[in-house]
């Protein structure tokens, strides 16, 4: 659990973070979003003390972060940054084993953990363990970056725009992988991004920052429905909010059992978001889709009426 109490950071006369309070529960995925320079990165880096806060208190499981030795603190917290920050002169395996080595784990345990992580992130050990970072693609390098952050099995993971430098397709793949990973590992994650779709897709809790302050925080769906001001509304997509909301809801939540009519010719997987279903309808000019399961077997149908559902209150 991470708690920030009225935390302020000043650089000289400039206030980068202005009295923010925040509580991230254990196992919660919290996304800090906002325009560049809003203080979200600074907030993140104050948690692992790469930047020292000027005022207020930051607690980790009820203990102030200043009560820890800063190096020991950081070894307990996973950290992923945009440009991976992999050491170019170390192999992938050595990079991943960095924190366990700092923690003086026995050699065999480090090796086993490295192999486990490579497997977890879909990087075959035989192919990747001895490669150097410059031999990896952007997506592979960032997977190694995530593996390195997870190496010592930290409870907390801080991620600073980890997918910001990747192409859209790789980015989506990695977002999905991170979602699966989080479902399995259940870490406490603080994730900084300026990509609202990314934040909406991943976060349990959305924290919108503007000029060093928290403007609004809550569940993504609540923010979409009830933005506190015009800034949050535009950040969440303005007129596109309908589609963003649709992207948060699964087809399976709105599908109906088969009706008396014939199967609709166009299909949609039950796990796809509603926005995708809508897109398929628009593309094929149809009002009805057949919902299929993972094996492509029809399990229900989705009509435009049901897709639209009840108007959100």
């Amino acid at each position: 659990m991470i708690e920030l109490f009225d935390v302020t950071k000043r650089f000289g006369s400039e206030t980068a973070v202005d009295g923010i309070s925040l509580r991230v529960e254990k196992g919660e995925f919290c996304a800090l979003v906002g325009t560049s320079g809003c203080g979200k990165s600074t907030t993140l880096r104050m948690i692992n003390r790469l930047i020292e806060h000027s005022e207020g208190e930051i607690h980790l499981d009820g203990q102030p972060v200043r009560s820890f030795n800063e190096e020991l603190l950081r070894r307990r917290i996973g950290y992923v940054i945009q440009n991976t920050g992999l050491f170019p002169h170390w192999t992938v395996a050595r990079n991943i084993g960095l924190v366990p080595r700092l923690l003086k784990w026995p050699r065999g345990k480090i090796q086993a953990r490295t192999d486990e992580l490579l497997g977890l992130l879909g990087l075959p050990r035989e192919e990747f363990a001895d490669k150097y970072p410059h031999q990896l693609s952007g997506g592979q390098a960032q997977r190694v970056g995530v593996a390195r952050a997870l190496a010592a099995d930290p409870e907390i993971l801080l991620m600073d725009e980890p997918f910001g430098a990747l192409d859209p397709i790789t980015r989506q793949t990695l977002q999905r992988e991170l979602q699966d990973l989080q479902a399995r590992l259940n870490k406490t994650v603080v994730f900084v991004t300026h990509d609202m779709d990314e934040a909406l897709a991943l976060a349990d809790r959305l924290v919108v920052m503007h000029q060093g302050r928290i403007v609004q925080q809550g569940r993504p769906i609540d923010l979409l429905h009830d933005p506190v001001d015009a800034f949050v509304e535009s950040l969440l997509g303005g007129m596109d909010r309908g589609l963003k909301e649709a992207s948060l809801t699964c087809v399976s939540e709105r599908m109906a059992p088969f009706g008396p009519r014939l199967l609709a010719s166009e299909r949609i997987p039950y796990r796809a978001p509603l926005s995708q279903a809508l897109s398929v309808m628009l593309w094929h000019r149809v009002e009805r889709l057949t919902v299929v399961d993972d094996e492509d077997i029809p399990i229900g149908e989705l009509s435009l009426r049901r897709l639209l559902g009840a108007k959100p209150s």
């Binding site: 070894r75 950290y79 920050g85 050491f87």
Partner: peptide, 17 residues
């Protein structure tokens, strides 16, 4: 590269390391 140094510090390496 500053990113490399930042990640070294962020992973918990001391200044000396």
């Amino acid at each position: 590269a500053p990113a490399v140094i930042e990640s070294a510090r962020g992973m918990g390496m001391s200044r000396r390391q």
